[in-house]
């Protein structure tokens, strides 16, 4: 037997695997959504199935603006995990008062600035083990 290595670095996004499936379904259509608590009405990022304020597990989906601004960023050149290429621009993006952790795709790493405007750019990653397409909420400089 040869050296064996197996890991799936991406979330399970399909309806059979997560109650947050609606987020990924909307993301595939270019929309950025999150959850609003059915108990107290609090809207959080990231989406969640349990409210940290009122302990309700009822929630509904709401769309957020698909644009925001760079709150903080760094460019990683080396030491990235296997399968992820550098330079990679990691950013905290401010959207409607929420901070969203993401990457900026297609950006010139030397030109990124705090306060810069960015837009949602859903990133297709490897299909899940059953062949369903998967997406991550990445952003691009506008």
């Amino acid at each position: 037997m040869s050296y064996f290595r197996a890991i799936d670095p991406f979330p399970l996004e399909s309806a059979e695997h997560t109650k947050l499936h609606e987020f990924y379904a909307r993301l595939a259509g270019g929309r950025l959504a999150t959850t609003r608590c059915g108990g107290c009405g609090a809207t959080t990022w990231p989406p969640r199935g349990f409210c940290p304020e009122c302990a309700s597990d009822r929630f509904e989906w709401v769309d957020l603006p698909a644009e925001g601004t760079v709150h903080a960023f760094t460019v990683q050149d080396a030491g990235l995990p296997a399968g992820f290429d550098g330079p990679r621009v990691f950013a905290i993006v401010k959207v409607a008062g929420h901070r969203i952790f993401s990457i900026l795709t297609g950006a010139d790493p030397g030109a990124v600035r705090v306060g810069q405007r960015v837009a949602l750019a859903p990133l297709r990653v490897a299909d899940d083990p059953r062949g369903h397409p998967r997406w991550l909420p990445a952003f691009r400089v506008t």
Binding site: P81, F84, F90, I92, F101, A138
Partner: peptide, 17 residues
Amino acid sequence: REWEAAFGLTAPPCFAL
């Protein structure tokens, strides 16, 4: 995993922020 590591995040960029 779902909201950070799926983008390739490990410790260095966190502390770089």
